[in-house]
Each structure stands twice: as structure tokens, then as C-alpha cells.
Design a protein around this nucleic acid. Structure first.
Lengths: 343, 343
DNA sequence: AGAATAAACGCAATCGATTGCGTAATTTTT
DNA sequence: AAAAATTACGCAATCGATTGCGTTTATTCT
């Protein structure tokens, strides 16, 4: 017995003595095939365990039913939320999601883009790596009319679809909250300034300070590479040993904020008594740490969903290349104990 | 100007007046092509922005360079760890990862399997949905010699590759720890028993009790559907209102354990004084909640990595269908404050 | 009834790369 | 120098589904 390969439409065609075209059309419910034949054909297809070969169909149609996602780290809560949203929207529209991680490295991001290009994804969703400063690896997508949607980590230098939050505004609101609580020496642990997100947050932060007559102390702004807890602890130690230490710190993610609170506990520094701590993203840990962490709700899941929707719309409606959309999603300041001034 | 489609090997062949075969071979560094031509061809390919079409290559070779992953929820830490591991190993071997979520629903899992079958993934990694009791949707993979590796949530009823932990043993160790600390009324919040993981953990739990002369109280075992924090709080409330309430609870994930601790704090129940709480997975939240949560380190990342490795090995080495491997990964009991008996 | 229209398919090219087999040119062997 | 062995390619089929166009048969119209 020869080990047979997969059953194809040709096999079905031969068995029913019709043409492969008819099989193909019948299985897709084409109107030019009689109800009668459709029933017979679908029945046989089931009986023979026919599995449609998407690869062949995709080749013929010059497209694929996968969309690519390049994220930084799948296992970080905020990014997992984005991916989850993308997957949900995509699969509801019959699309599969291919996920690659850049680990915040430029080199990996370029390589990922290459791989997704070769696999002919019908669209790309990207959250930029921290390192990335050059965007040429996305150009082939534009040239080949493959829509690219940037989510959260977007490039200000590139004209494309984008889904993000108003980082300037929300950083302003967050900082203002600290000021309103009476804090005057507010530090900011940010990401590297070339990444728009962090530049904007720094902007919002400085804007709030200036508006309230607080002069901006450059030594109070840290541009961190990994934004890890360890990096944050290192930073806060330096800050607290300054002649005039901060009485509040605005962290650009919750991991850093939580690490700082934990450090403070060990060091006997009272939060928020001696140091108010504000996070970002509103990870689940914000309501677990004590004191509960004030943070900014960052709608990752919705962001992923919207990005996927934008992508799929782009393809369905065959938008022109110049018709780029930017979606700004709402955020919310989640005020909790870690920033409430105690009298 | 006609809008051109992608550049193909035929275009390159025409321009250099050689055959497409030569282009194909040259670009893959085939030994039968002269160094000279290889250089010329790769140079032109770069110049013309040639993008290899993986779809065409895959069709010809009857395979794809993606592996499929069916997980329950991407945005749950443990599962995100698995996926992250899969992605890292896969992409290091030039493979892409297609991810679909079942949301713990049988129906979605079947649908996902179908989609991945059609897209001709070269392998499948699955973490079973809680609901799943029937495994026929995986049969087509076996029939078509597509390797399936189950990770963490494995089916005892099916013979296949598996990567998991020793749930019986680790549940035994965890329960024994509680007993050793002096707790005698130990409840267990588990998942549904038909899922092997949870059945095994219940087994380990009861084994430890019996071995120490503690009789097993069926009312102390909850088989929860979603294993959410809310479900856990509901359960602990019932348990604590029993005539003889538990003095310890072993939760099958950390989310439940943390919710219970938070509930206890509000209700004025001292942990571990009045109720010891043990979690599972060793999520980051274990070291954030106070008291810190005793838990079981569950090597998700490594699990994903091993699963991917197994899959790729299977394909590379062309194993027979009967040559199934089961990998059991080590775990570790992470003892923290939430279970330390106070005298 | 003859013509026009619609319904229900079949033919064959096509998508882009891969590959077994064949061949001409060049080099090595005896 | 003739034979054998390499080297360096080309030819054409192939993977499996899709689709524009053409054809046959059945139905409707006048």
C-alpha cells in the first residue's frame, strides 16, 4: 500500500466524474453550481476527509490569511493584552495571527519583518522595539501595499496607520495629580527619549511641572533601557541620595513602580508618606501591592482589537496608500493609595 | 505605468538570461552553481528588492514554516510564558508561530485545530481547553503525520508527545508542606477533574492527606470551571462557613490564592494565622502580595521551549508515529509567608 | 417553434518556487 | 589523445486550488 498524500480536489473530481473547477466552486458555495451537486460534493469531501490546502489557494490568490505581529515581549502583561485583542478580532474574521518577538532589539525586529514579508502576511501589526531608530525594514511593506499598523509603540517619523494613547496628555494628568496632592519634587523614570511614547510622556510631565511653576530638574528624569525593576531600584537609590531627593516618582510602567515600593519597604521609606509612587499601564499587580499603586489604565486589549480591525478594514476596503488613520484610545488615571498625600 | 506585482525568480532569470532553476538554486547556495553566478544573482536579487515567496515554496514542498499553537488565554501569565518559550525556540530554527486562543472552550479549540490544519502547519502545540473531553479534532493531524505536542494541559486518553510537570508529585509535596506546618483541615480549590492536570493534583493532595492519617473531606475539594478570583472567593466563603472550616487552602493557581488573601484581609481573617494559603504557578504576584504567597514554580517558558524543540526534532528526524516522547519538567515548591505556621 | 436567456458546468492557464533528470562544456584520468 | 568524471547549468513537470472564458443543456420569451 502506497502511503497516500492528502486528498485533493482532483481526487474528488475524479471520483465524481466532474471537473476540479466544479469541486472548487461547490465547496465554496458558488452560485453557478447546482444545489444538488453541492450536496453531493460536500458529502464526499467529508467522507474522504478532504482538507482544503490554504497554501495552494493563497498562492493562486496572491495573499495569505495570516496577519503578522511583531511585539517586544509576549510575556509582559500589557503586550499580552494587545496580542490577545489582535487574536480575538483577527480570528473572528477568519484570520490567523503569526507572532514574533523582538525582545526590544532592533536586529530582531528587522529579522522578524523579513520573515513576515517572505511569508506574505496580509498585514503587519507592530509595537516597536526600544532600540529601533531606523524604519527602513518597513518600507517593503509599503511598497508592496501590505498595510502596517503600529500599536502603542509608534514611530513619529513614519506615516502609517497607528493605534495609541495620548501619551502627552495622560502623563500631564498623572503628573498634575501628584502636584495636586502637594508633591513638588517629582522624578520621572522613563524609557529612552527617541521612542515617541516616552518622549511624549516626558513632554506631558514637564508641561505639568512648568504650568505649576515647578522648575524641571534634569537630574530627575531617567531614560532607562530595559525599564526593569532592577533598573528602577538602581535609579531610585541614586535619586534618594541626592541633596534634594524627590518626594514622588512617576514610573513609566508598573513593574518599576512596584519594585520601588518593595525597595522602599525594605529601606524603611514610607510610601506615600516620604515618597509617592505612580505607575503606568494598570497591570493586575497595581491592586495587589500595598499600598495599592496609582496607575494609568492603558487599554492594551482594545488597542490590539482596533489595530486588527484597522488592518482588516484596510484590506477589505482597498484603501489607498495615503489614507492613513490614527486612532487614539482613551485612558484613565486610576488613583490609589500610593500617591495620596497623608497629612 | 503598470503597477507591477512582486519580483519573481522568473524576472531575475530573464534579466540575467539564465533559467529560473539556476536562480532558485543560487539563492539557496546550492553547490552545483558556480560561485561566480551566485554572487551575480544575489546581487541582482538585492538590487531588484526580490522577496522570496514562501507560499510558493511551501506549496511545492508540501509543508510550511509555521507551527501552530492553541492556547487557552494568551494574557494569562503562565500561558504567555509557554508561548514566549515556543516563539523563542521556533524562531531560532527559522519557524514562525501561529497562535490561536480557545478561551477554554471546546468549540473554539476544534475550530482552531481546523484552521491550523487548513493552513498546513508543520506541527501543533496544544494546551487543552478546560471544556475539552473529546479529542477527535486532533486525529487528522495524526493521520497526516503532523506532529502534535501537548504542553501542560495534556490528554491522558491520547497517545502523543507531551511536555508537562508531575502534577501528582508536586501537589503531594505542596500538601505535605501544609501538613508539616501543622495544618489539618486543608481545602483544595482545583479545576475540573476530567482535565488530567487537576485530577492529578487532587490525587497528590489526597495521597498526602491519607499518608498522614487525615481523612479526605469531599466538601473540601472544589472543582472550579474558570478558576477566577471571583469563583475562588465564592468558594472560600462557603468553606469558611462550614461547621468545621479549613485552616488552609491549596489553590491550583495564583490568581485564586491572591484573591483569597485579599478577601481575608477585608474580612479580618488572618493569613496564615487563621488560614494558610498556597498557590500554584509562581506568578510574579506571589512576591507582591502580602503575605508573600507560597506557590509551586511551574516552568512555563521552559515548557514552551521543550515543546517546540520536540516538535522540530520530530520533523527533522522523521520519527515514526509510534515514537512518542513525554518530557516531565522539574518543579519547585516556593515556600513563603502565606503558609508558615505562626506559634 | 425559433430565438434569446439563463443555468451548470469544463478547459486550461495561472500563482512562484522546487527538483529529478538530462546535457553541454570543462577538467581529470589513464 | 580518448575515455571518464566533474562542473554548471536548462527543461519541464509539479505542488493544489482558483478563475476567465467558452460550451452545452435546459428554460423562457415572443
Amino acid at each position: 500500500m502506497k502511503s497516500k498524500t492528502h486528498v485533493t480536489i482532483y481526487d474528488l473530481a475524479k471520483e465524481l466524474d466532474v471537473s476540479p473547477s466544479t469541486i472548487s466552486r461547490a465547496l465554496r458555495g458558488h452560485s453557478s453550481i447546482s444545489e444538488d451537486k453541492i450536496k453531493i460534493i460536500t458529502k464526499l469531501a467529508k467522507k474522504r476527509n478532504y482538507i482544503p490546502n490554504d497554501i495552494a489557494a493563497n498562492l493562486r490568490q496572491n495573499k495569505s490569511n495570516n496577519i503578522g505581529v511583531i511585539t517586544t515581549w509576549i510575556n509582559r502583561n500589557f503586550h499580552a493584552q494587545i496580542i490577545s485583542g489582535v487574536e480575538e478580532e483577527a480570528s473572528s474574521q477568519g484570520m490567523n495571527v503569526i507572532i514574533l518577538q523582538s525582545h526590544d532589539r532592533y536586529k530582531d525586529e528587522v529579522q522578524n519583518a523579513q520573515a513576515l514579508l517572505n511569508s506574505r502576511v496580509s498585514g503587519l501589526i507592530v509595537s516597536l522595539a526600544m532600540e529601533t531608530r531606523n524604519y527602513d525594514h518597513f518600507l517593503p511593506f509599503f511598497k508592496n501595499r501590505i498595510p502596517v499598523v503600529f500599536a502603542d509603540r509608534v514611530p513619529s517619523e513614519l506615516n502609517s496607520h497607528k493605534v495609541l494613547i495620548d501619551n502627552v496628555k495622560v502623563a500631564y494628568v498623572a503628573t498634575k495629580h501628584l502636584i495636586d496632592q502637594g508633591y513638588r519634587h517629582i522624578a520621572h523614570l522613563s524609557g529612552q527619549r527617541h521612542r515617541e511614547n516616552y518622549r511624549d510622556r516626558i513632554l506631558g510631565y514637564t508641561k505639568a511641572l512648568k504650568e505649576h511653576g515647578i522648575n524641571v530638574n534634569k537630574n530627575f528624569i531617567y531614560e532607562l533601557k530595559t525599564k526593569s525593576g532592577d533598573e528602577a531600584i538602581q535609579a531610585i537609590q541614586e535619586l534618594l541620595s541626592l541633596p534634594i531627593p524627590p518626594d514622588a516618582v512617576f514610573c513609566t510602567n508598573d513593574t518599576m513602580a512596584v519594585s520601588i515600593i518593595q525597595y522602599c519597604k525594605k529601606a524603611g521609606i514610607h510610601v506615600p508618606g516620604q515618597l509617592a509612587v505612580m505607575g503606568f499601564n494598570n497591570d493586575p499587580i497595581t491592586t495587589i501591592i500595598e499600598p495599592n499603586l496609582t496607575s494609568v489604565f492603558n487599554p492594551g486589549f482594545e488597542m490590539g482589537k482596533q489595530a486588527a480591525k484597522l488592518l482588516l478594514d484596510h484590506n477589505r476596503l482597498k484603501w489607498t496608500d495615503k489614507n492613513f488613520t490614527t486612532i487614539k484610545l482613551g485612558t484613565e488615571l486610576m488613583i490609589r493609595e500610593s500617591t495620596i498625600k497623608i497629612n
